[in-house]
Design a binder for these strands. Structure first.
Lengths: 352, 352
DNA sequence: CTGTTAGCGCTTTCAC
DNA sequence: GTGAAAGCGCTAACAG
């Protein structure tokens, strides 16, 4: 219907913002204002531009936008202090994204904070207000933290939770796995690996007040109690993700339960569990399943101490969080499919 | 040592090609020629530019390059005709990359060819000469094909093999999984799921002359014969990836081997195997492991017919092939880590 | 063999 | 409210 311009019609390429501006009978600047939701444009103009965008099927060229943009993006990444191997992996993967960040005119500041101190984390989050345009936080699901996140969001900061969600907050996105499903996966694998003989199953968690650990336990128990009724899941013991503590706990478990058939390690500190099993000479006969493919886990998988590892790809998580931060900042679309974090299962045979 | 320019020194941003040109005392155009290995530059100039690049730590801005480039990329994707579900997934994932392709000024032409006809495939490949700058081919490992690939490569076409490699060819890259490792993974899982009772294990392949199928069998047998000696792996039967043929073959298997404990399906056509198991009422007791998470496989996993699926992520493979095609065309670096295709294991519990 | 110059499609002052 | 115009950092003619 509408009159069409030669260029929009004939040119093999896509419509540009100038095309849109011309069609809408406004200037390039005004078209840009509408596209980027900047204030101070007459409703009439807005409508005309929108209409032209739709009619010409206009999509901004991200390369041009990136090149023209002078302001650069400031993001923050909040991680637990005290360096367990998985957190170290996240840091390493971030470092590997340096060139990508430069290319996209973005910089990331890493902040460390004690995970077990909700107040500290909340304070830190609050201090980020105005310091960065988006905060990527590997958090702790606690009312104080939830509240601090909501405060940041209200202040106009984008918030993305990483690895461990704070679902009741108003964070803009969560990058990580479904931990209940991960727990169920561990249970299916463990149950089938143990086989028919009855016996007990030990569960070693870091802390059940960590949302991801609690959810994994939930999923695990759900499957064990419905599908593997010949196995008794012992109450979870908590070792604060510490190898030393875990070792003691597993020694006790082994001593007290001669029929212990398997161990599910929900959190970190697997080295301790591995050590206790080896000390008892039962590392081959007790089925042992844990999380996160660290270098140590890899070795234990290869020598048969660990039977399977449930993993979330740290590199994928970091890249996904960064891509989403960028997409939100530039209002580019995200390829949802590519951002779904998989629950990886590793046996010794399919190690990367 | 070298005298440095204000801009290179002080500016917070990165060095630009103009900086490099100035430092090397040549023009922008000459600097560009060196950077893009274009002919007709004095050795002296080349050296000076290279030195300046190194000294300033110059890295081209991909956004600027993409914007300035007028020529667009023409790529071809060669797929087997006859549409099995996995190939359909690849097509769908390519379609989902449309916007990405547009943004990168690239277009992909899909070509279908009968996989079981090496001569046809070889002819098709040869016809691509000069038609596209890179060919992404899901091929067939046969001397004729290998030869055609080498011909393309000699003619200056980039070649990337997808899903099934042609390792003796001079293709520039392979995007896909290690199929022997995938076979080993299937064996480990199957062996442990079956448990201690002795019995037979059936193997259903599409065609052992397909490299990926042959390699999976190899890996599978390797693990079965060393780690699960109480199980006897029957000779592989070949069903050409056809559900109908596979159903007949599995009916026979079930009839002839009352102690059949498990089936490993190496290729496509799992619907037939599933049907045969259900017809015999043995779908829950026979362990069934196959490849590729198609919609049908998903359903069989959920109802317990399939016990595990070994998968390669079609979306990841397509995106990875496209990114590598782009990287080769623009000589941008690739993030190797991100391009490694995982051997995914899916149980009903960790379905995406 | 080398340099000059005009864009690519946006963003962003700065004037009106 | 709106528009004109100057870049962003590279590529690609086109002259020398």
């Amino acid at each position: 219907m509408g009159r069409m311009t030669e260029k929009a019609d004939l040119a093999s390429g896509r419509a540009t913002l100038s095309d849109v501006a011309r069609e809408a009978r406004v200037s390039l600047a005004t078209a840009d204002r509408v596209l980027n939701n900047r204030a101070g444009v007459h409703a009439k103009s807005i409508a005309r531009v929108r209409e032209a965008v739709a009619r010409l099927n206009y999509r901004p060229d991200p390369a041009a936008a990136r090149l023209a943009r002078t302001r650069s993006h400031r993001w923050c990444l909040v991680l637990p202090s005290g360096g367990n191997a998985f957190v170290a992996q996240l840091q390493a993967e971030l470092a590997a994204c340096r060139a990508w960040l430069e290319d996209h005119r973005a910089s990331v500041q890493i902040l460390e904070v004690d995970v077990f101190e909700p107040q500290r984390l909340a304070d830190l989050l609050r201090s980020l207000q105005g310091q960065c345009e988006t905060a990527i936080v590997m958090g702790l699901d606690h009312p104080l933290v939830q509240n601090a996140i909501d405060g940041l969001v209200d202040g106009g900061c984008e918030v993305i939770t990483l690895v461990s969600d704070v679902p009741r907050s108003r964070r803009h996105a969560y990058v990580g796995i479904d931990n209940a499903a991960a727990g169920r996966t561990a249970a299916s694998l463990l149950g089938r690996f143990v086989g028919r003989e009855p016996g007990e199953v030990g569960v070693v968690a870091g802390s059940l007040s960590l949302r991801d650990h609690a959810e994994r336990c939930l999923g695990f128990n759900q499957v064990m109690t419905t599908e593997f009724t010949h196995l008794t899941v012992l109450p979870a013991v908590q070792g604060k993700d510490s190898p030393a503590l875990n070792e003691v706990l597993v020694r006790q478990l082994l001593a007290e339960h001669p029929r212990l058939r398997a161990i599910y390690s929900v959190g970190a500190g697997n080295a301790g569990i591995s050590a206790a099993l080896k000390a008892a000479g039962r590392e081959r006969e007790v089925v042992f399943i844990g999380h996160e493919l660290t270098p140590a886990a890899r070795a234990d998988l290869l020598d048969g101490t660990l039977d399977a590892v449930i993993n979330q790809d740290a590199g994928h998580e970091i890249r996904s969080a960064l891509r989403q931060a960028l997409a939100r900042a530039t209002r580019e679309p995200v390829h949802a499919d590519q951002e779904r974090i998989r629950i990886d299962i590793y046996l010794k045979d399919n190690l990367p």
